[in-house]
Amino acid sequence: MKKTYLYRAILLSLLTAFILASCEDVVEVNLNDEDIDLVAVEAYLDTRANDNIFVKIEKTLRVNQAESNPPVSNALVEISDNEAVPNTIVLEEQGNTGIYKLPENTVYEAVPGRTYQLTITTEEGVVITASEYLQEVETLDKTRVNLSARGDYEFLAVYINSQETPGKGNYYKWDIYINNELLYESEYLSFASDELVDGNYIYDFEILTDFEEKEEDKLMHKNDTVRVEQLSISKASYDFYFALINQAFTGSPFSVPPANVPGNLVSSDGKRVLGLFSARDISVGESIVIDDNNYQPLVSSIPPGI
């Protein structure tokens, strides 16, 4: 699993602990006048049976504007694959929200092994495209919730067990749902590459540690339902999430300078398109209801004799 985000998260948590007299507060800044006005796309295609396509198109805002990003409406949004006779579908905008999904009562089967193309034609005639290979995902065998060794068994953590596909170039993301709501904040993004672990069976990989001290700040409480979905993502998506998590952890002494998040979309007018199109295969893990048994240190999943 990719070393960098793992240790960076560790380093940040320890750093904030030891800087004794440091502090954070909100300040006013003088921003530049530049107005770049670009289009941002957030598009997902996954292997669920229903409602498995989501495309959101919006325009950027200046940083000091405090409203929702303006939607890009009335665009022609299509998904197709690379079969001999391509399977194409045109998505329907939900009202004027700039969000495009499958029309009602329609299904579109996403098959691992195929390459999918997203084509957006805006009202002004600009064509935005992106292409993603849908990689088959390994089954998420087991999810565990126990007390983490990090922080000396005071905090709950979520662990997964899965095989890693042999052959370098596999990337994973874990979506964590607490009470059926996705834990969406960038700082909790959980994703990895197979660079250091290629082909190994992954036992008890810690994908989330709930480091909050106060009960009201904690992410997981007793009686909460936790469910993990393991996704196979492309390298482009991995690079995207990597840059996204760097933006979440910026500003500390160990942070890198702020950088733009790279995407995989191109525009016919040559302008940079922000955001990403990600095609992913999903393995849904078991749902765990947290009770007293979870407030124990993890007992290793590694079978004896290994």
Binding site: I36, R62, V63, N69, Y184, S186, L244, P257
Partner: peptide, 27 residues
């Protein structure tokens, strides 16, 4: 320092876009 010139959203998060390098200053 570089401050962002634009923002957009992905998975519910604000994402920032930067332009010229080091075009601002800390206090």
């Amino acid at each position: 320092i570089s401050y962002p010139v634009a923002k957009y959203t992905v998975q519910g998060n604000q994402v920032f876009e930067y332009s010229a390098r080091n075009s601002n200053r800390l206090p």
